[in-house]
């Protein structure tokens, strides 16, 4: 996933809704992308999303090997191995590992591009 021109972002958050909708849900609980203002709407927005690092720090701190290297960068999550410790969240310097409070597991971007279809 790449943000092409952040100055075009209007902050509508349709990408965040799209990400959770992949699971047939409304809201943000399963979203692996976040849009927020950079210190107030007047200054514009930032889109936080996994950049698919070739050598992902989140994977390196996973104590149960629930995260494995994805082809093309980033990681894939094996939820049955995940114990919900949250170390991956702390390890990501972009803060792009989000947390699903309802499942108590991370939301990992799979780089499917579904969200991009809804960017107006």
């Amino acid at each position: 996933m790449t943000v092409l021109d952040i100055d075009k972002c209007v902050g509508c958050q349709l990408c965040m809704f799209a990400c959770s909708r992949r699971f047939g849900e409304g809201g943000f609980a399963k979203s692996a992308i976040r849009v927020k203002s950079i210190g107030g709407v007047e200054r514009g927005f930032t889109v936080v999303v996994c950049r698919a690092c070739p050598d992902p720090p989140c994977m390196k701190v996973c104590v149960t090997n629930a995260l494995s290297l994805r082809k093309g960068g980033g990681v894939t999550l094996n939820p049955s191995k995940c114990i919900g410790c949250g170390r991956c969240v702390d390890a990501c310097p972009l803060k792009a590992v989000f947390w699903d409070n309802e499942a108590n597991k991370p939301n990992i971007c799979i780089h499917c591009g579904y969200c991009a279809n809804y960017c107006p």
């Binding site: 909708r21 699971f23 047939g24 809201g27």
Partner: peptide, 16 residues
């Protein structure tokens, strides 16, 4: 950051 569950996810996505 709760989710909202819907009755019929498939139809929901099509209507959306």
């Amino acid at each position: 950051k709760h989710s909202v569950k819907v009755e019929n996810p498939q139809e929901y996505r099509i209507l959306y």
